[in-house]
Amino acid sequence: MIVVEGLRKRFGTVQALHDVSFTAANGRITGLLGHNGAGKSTTLRILSTVIRTDEGRALVDGSDCATESLQVRRSLGVLPHASGLYPHLSGRENIHYYARLHGLPEDQVGPATAMLIERLGLSEVVDRRAKGYSQGERLKVSLARALIHKPRTVILDEPTNGLDVNAVRMLRELIRELRTSGCCVLFSSHVMQEVAALCDDIVIIAHGRVVVSGTPEQILAATHTTDLEEAFVRAADGVAA
């Protein structure tokens, strides 16, 4: 469960977030939709406690991202924008590293990794160095790394960028599985079809503000159209005008 209330964030002279509020419920997939530079990554970075908000607050399962950051990071699985794998380590070693830093007991590191390797179909590549991985292989290992501690809340930052169709399908399937198991899934994208294909709730963000949010039906109603693509364009550009 993610609750975000009135986030504001300034980097130097740039006001990245003006007013961002939304809720992402457990057992649902929430899409954070916006153009490049709208403030998606900044919002996700505040949630993952890497940066702090200037005003407002962000809660993950009731813990404040600013004051109880360690508790938040424990319950969070983050798939970052860049895969950030260590090229000289094998996929398995990359996953083990995160498992240990999440504090998994040593005797569970191996089995937990093995389970994800099987689920993601990684067994053929997982003992090779990450340097030679394809885009899809990198994504799978990053996913395994992000999910190794069975997080209740999963944040994915533009996960489908640059992926081929098979990898995208695999990812969607996995995200739906996470929903079924009761996780709160928040993922960002700048592609409406992506969000429409997957999300139960949509939050459209433009110029650092949430312009509209709700189920796809609610968004269509609010923007007086029948096409989600059109709804996104109207909502995002309505603020700029």
């Binding site: 970075r45 424990r74 983050v78 970052p80 924008h81 860049a82 950030g84 794998l85 090229p87 995160y98």
Partner: peptide, 14 residues
Amino acid sequence: ERGSLEPLLSLPIS
């Protein structure tokens, strides 16, 4: 530069 710092900082370690 490799983009691995950000996910590392979102882990539950100080």
